[in-house]
Simulated scan of single mutants.
Amino acid sequence: MDRTTIDTYTRAAQQYAGEWAGQPPPDDLYALLLQYFRPGGVTADIGCGSGRDVAWLNAKGFLATGYDASEGLLAEAAAQYPSYAFQHAELPELAGVPRGNFDNVLCETVIMHLSPEQVGDACRRLVDLLKPNGVLFLSWRVTEGNSARDAAGRLYSAFDAQLVRAALAGTTLALDEAATNQSSGKSVHRIVAIRRA
C-alpha cells in the first residue's frame, strides 16, 4: 500500500478511530453482508481499521479476523475489541494471510489507497484468499478525475471499475453497483464476487 497513507493512519490512529466510531453505523453494508456472506463462515476483514466491522461480524456469528497495514490502527482495534484477532498484512501481497482459507472476505473502502497499477494484483490476491464458492465483498471510494491526496496525505486513486472486474476472473459477480456509503456519505463502488468451484 501507499506508505504515506499507512503512516498517516498510524500517526493519527486514535483520531481516525474516534471519527469512525462517531459515524452512523453502516447498516447498508451490514445488510449486504448478511445477504451474501456464507453464514458462520471463516471471514477475513482486509483493511479492518479500528475493528468495528470485525466486532459486528463476530457478533453475527462469522468467525472473523481483522487484517490491516497500520500498526496504529491495529493497536486501536486490539484495545477496543480484545476478544477478537487482529494481524498485520498489507495489500497487494497480504503476506501471511492464508490462501484458500476463507468463506468470506470483506475489503471495505481500502483499495483506493493503492496506486492504480497495484489494484489488479490486490483484487486477484483477495480472490486467492477464498475457498471455492467463497464470497468477496469489495468496495472502494470513487475518485473522479485524477488520483489525489487529501489534506492529511492519504492517497485516493482514480481508476475505472473495469480494472477491478477484469482482475476478478474466476468469479461470478453477484453485485456490481455505484452507491453512497450510508456511514461516511461518500460515493463508493461495490462488488460482490463469488469464487467459482
Rank of each mutant, 00 (worst) to 15 (best):
K131C: 11
E144I: 00
R52K: 11
T43C: 06
L33V: 15
G40A: 05
T43W: 12
L73S: 04
E71K: 04
R149C: 01
D103I: 04
Y67Q: 06
V142P: 00
Q80D: 03
D45W: 09
Y67I: 03
F137H: 11
V54H: 05
S70W: 06
W140A: 06
Q87H: 15
L32P: 06
L94A: 07
A44D: 11
H88K: 13
L126F: 06
A89S: 12
A148Q: 00
A69P: 09
L32C: 05
A59S: 15
L106H: 05
L34Y: 00
E76V: 05
A69Q: 11
L155Y: 08
A148T: 00
T43H: 12
A89L: 07
A77S: 10
F62K: 03
R124D: 02
R124T: 06
S139E: 01
S50M: 05
L32Q: 13
V42T: 10
T109V: 15
L114G: 06
Y36F: 15
F86R: 02
A122V: 00
G145F: 00
D128W: 02
R99W: 05
T143Q: 05
R38W: 04
C123L: 11
N146S: 10
S115P: 02
D103T: 07
G41T: 10
G134K: 12
E108H: 11
W140N: 11
G41S: 08
T109G: 06
Y81G: 00
F37S: 11
A69G: 12
A148K: 00
L34R: 14
N133K: 14
P92K: 08
R38A: 13
Q80R: 15
I46G: 01
G47I: 09
A78M: 13
L73N: 03
A31S: 12
A85P: 01
T109H: 13
H88Q: 13
E71M: 09
L57A: 09
A69Y: 10
A69W: 10
F62S: 04
L138N: 01
K60Y: 04
R99H: 07
E71P: 03
H88P: 01
G72A: 10
R125E: 15
V119C: 02
G120T: 15
S50D: 14
A75C: 06
N146T: 12
R38S: 13
E93T: 15
A152I: 02
D103F: 06
L114W: 09
R52Q: 15
T65V: 14
A95M: 09
F86C: 09
G153A: 08
G51V: 03
G40N: 09
G41Q: 12
N101C: 09
H113T: 01
L155F: 10
T109N: 15
R125L: 03
A64E: 10
V142G: 00
C107P: 09
S147W: 15
F102K: 07
G96L: 12
S50A: 15
N133I: 05
M112C: 03
D150F: 01
C123R: 06
D68C: 04
V127C: 07
F37K: 05
L155S: 04
V97E: 04
T65I: 14
N133S: 11
I111N: 00
S83D: 14
N101K: 13
A89E: 11
A31P: 04
D128L: 01
L114C: 13
A122E: 00
A64G: 08
H88V: 07
R141C: 00
A31Q: 13
L73C: 07
P82Y: 07
H88I: 04
E71S: 12
K60F: 02
V97F: 14
G100F: 05
G66E: 08
N104I: 02
E76D: 08
